[in-house]
């Protein structure tokens, strides 16, 4: 009986679901999302790829020395690299996820 009343109340309530592709929930201001990388700030200290628990950051070389490559499809959003980067070259965004058509776009240099 309790549920019947509840059901009738629900009948007049606004829906609790969202119609996903048309409506999207805005992530909260503190959401830990995708990483972004400012290559010009990087000094190549190597902390990020040594600390990454998911091996999502690989070491790469260019003319300035060692630089990280981010394989964002492996990223587990733990953000240790964001915290550990001495030059704040790695930044966190509120962007939710790695849903892309082209996997190579998740390889950020």
């Amino acid at each position: 009986m309790v549920t019947s009343f509840e059901a009738i109340k629900n009948f007049f309530r606004k829906r609790a679901t969202i119609l996903y592709p048309e409506e999207k929930i805005e992530p909260s201001a503190t959401f830990r999302g995708m990483l972004s990388f400012e290559r010009s700030l990087c000094i190549g200290c190597g902390l990020c790829w040594r600390v990454c628990p998911a091996s999502a950051i690989k070491q790469d070389r260019d003319d300035k020395g060692a630089r990280p490559v981010f394989l964002l499809d492996r990223c587990i959003f733990c953000h240790i690299c964001v915290e550990i980067c001495p030059k704040k070259a790695i930044k966190a965004s509120r962007d939710r996820g790695s849903l892309v058509m082209d996997k190579s776009s998740l390889r950020v240099k």
Binding site: V51, C52, P53, A54, I76, C78, I80
Partner: peptide, 8 residues
């Protein structure tokens, strides 16, 4: 994993 990484 190191202790820091193992947490995750």
């Amino acid at each position: 994993k190191t202790y820091t990484q193992g947490l995750y």
